[in-house]
């Protein structure tokens, strides 16, 4: 293992950490502005031009707020829970190819931290571990609303892990590899080669389960403000609460990278235009998360379970079987 490789990896890790923790902050600004636009409000306007410095103001508030650990909580678990959410979100990013490889001063850079050949499994696994954060926070909080939220986390996790796994199985069978770089190379021939045309069902299923795994609005039961206060976040304050948010927004960005990479051609042939195209797709999927939040109500927990086990899972299984038959004959 030579020194150049080590330095390159460390630089990549630091760059990804900095960019995406900053983006998580700016993501909250986008969310407020887009929700405001759709509800005919102005959103944040006072701090800086168009309210752009609101992010900085929020950051200062979160960092300087008193760090309260309530009396009856299980303190070590209570403290480690937000760290799990934030850390696993960034660990999942290690296997995502953010850009095509490019050359700087004659040195070829691969913008992926670890090109493991099981990338997609690793990403799904790490994102699943991220759900331990809300659950541990909820169980350690000594608060009934938090405990309800923890129970819902466990239910959502156990059900939607099945749907996303089965949905992604069909594209994996077609590509014959678990590496996201191979997924991208499979679709290199342009729009007509995108997997979404041959696997539309898998695409929709994976997209739906992405909402469940990031805990966004139609499935926002884990921290449902109008039913269970703030769920797992009720007892949290200051930067511990902020870490939960960084984790959630970073996860939204990363899943927005993963969906285009698997189904919509990724960065294409690796040209500059392809890289811009990937960013545009990521922006669309991130916008869609916010759009759904403005347009849809939350579903009830029993509707969520019904949707998962009686609708989505059978469709996913049938999709896998049909894909298998088509590939065999």
């Amino acid at each position: 293992m030579d020194t150049a490789y080590l330095i390159e990896t460390i630089i990549k890790v630091v760059v990804i950490l900095l960019i995406f923790s900053a983006l998580a902050g700016i993501g909250t600004y986008f969310e407020r502005k887009i929700l405001a636009f759709m509800q005919r409000r102005l959103g944040p306007m006072y701090v800086g031009p168009y309210g752009l410095l609101q992010v900085a103001a929020d950051g200062v508030k979160l960092f300087t707020k008193e760090d309260i650990v309530p009396t009856n909580v299980v303190a070590p678990i209570f403290k480690i829970a937000p760290v799990i959410t934030a850390a696993t979100a960034f660990m999942a990013a290690a296997a995502i190819p953010f850009f095509p490889e490019f050359t700087v001063f004659g040195y070829t850079v691969h913008p992926i931290v670890a090109d493991v050949n099981i990338g997609i499994l690793y990403i799904l696994g790490m994102m699943a571990v991220g759900l331990y954060g809300p659950m541990l926070g909820g169980m350690a909080s000594a608060n009934k609303f938090s405990l309800l939220s923890a129970a819902r986390t466990a239910a959502v996790f156990i059900s939607y892990e099945v749907v996303s796994g089965l949905a992604i199985l069909a594209p994996i069978m077609m590509v014959g590899s678990l590496s996201l770089v191979d997924f991208n190379n499979y679709q290199v021939g342009g729009i007509s080669h995108w997997i979404v045309w041959s696997q539309p069902v898998a695409f929709i299923l994976f997209w739906i389960s992405a909402f469940a795994e990031t805990g966004r609005t139609p499935f926002h039961l884990i921290a449902n403000d109008h039913e269970i206060i703030d769920g797992f976040g009720t007892e949290y304050s200051g930067m511990r609460w902020g870490l939960f948010f960084i984790g959630e927004y970073a996860n939204m960005f990363f899943i927005s990278f993963v969906i285009p990479l698997i189904f919509l051609g990724g960065f294409g042939d690796g040209s500059f235009l392809g890289a811009i195209g990937l960013l545009a797709k990521v922006a669309f999927f991130f916008f869609f998360f916010l759009w759904t939040r403005a347009a849809w109500p939350d579903v009830r927990p029993d509707q969520l379970m019904w949707l998962c086990w009686k609708v989505l899972m059978p469709i996913a299984v049938i999709n896998v079987v049909i894909t298998g038959f088509v590939m065999m004959f």
Partner: peptide, 20 residues
């Protein structure tokens, strides 16, 4: 790598059921 990723996925789910 494959077994490593499977270990993560399977045991997070299994232990999650124990939490329940």
């Amino acid at each position: 790598d494959f077994l490593g990723a499977i270990q993560i996925i399977v045991y997070t789910g299994a232990v999650m059921a124990l939490y329940a």
